[in-house]
Amino acid sequence: MQKNWWKVVTVLLLVYTVVAGFLNDVPRLAILNESIRNTYFHVPMWFGMILLLLISVIYAIKYLKTPTLRNDIISTEAARVGLLFGVLGIITGMGWASVTWGEFWSNDPKQNASAIGLLMYFAYFVLRGSFAEQQQRARISAVYNIFAYAALIPLLFILPRLTDSLHPGNGGNPGFSSYDMDSKMRMVFYPAVIAWTLLGVWILNVKSRFEILKQKLYEHAHA
């Protein structure tokens, strides 16, 4: 139980996010109105995705250095959970966009970039599916994982800043300072980001432990 303290933190932060996210005061802004509270639920999805994909890449690199089953499994599962967060992010984003910007898809560079990013990781899973042999699959998909992540970075960080975006900080920095947040909102936003990201890590933790166990049992059965 001692080493599971971070899971307790996750639960507490999530509850705090929901309660404070609905009940605290937010700035009164035109068009956004109450939907500004989406900041606590939509934006953390992207933070979670980026972190999980980062974990995926780190474990892919680790796999190339020391090819163990564990590294491969964690890398894959992190990509999978990251993809889940990405899909949730894009769905919530589309819902929010349809209310505030008038369309589900408004050709916003960030929307496009995230869609391309998701495509990239769908391709990663197609690639994984096309190998029968485990070691080859792990090695080559690790290579693609790193390659795709390196290509994703310019996509996420450069493209939205070069063109005008409907997102806050358009044509400039998508970072915090430009969000229309006051200090009260930050009090909820930062815990929300940590909470959702931790939730992703938790799911990753459970899933990868399960997969590792499964592989071990298979080996056992075959031996």
């Binding site: 450069i158 800043r161 900080g169 400039g172 920095n173 970072g175 430009s178």
Partner: peptide
């Protein structure tokens, strides 16, 4: 670099 780029519009 991007952070450097973005200072002014953010302000």
């Amino acid at each position: 670099n991007n952070a450097a780029v973005a200072q002014t519009p953010a302000a």
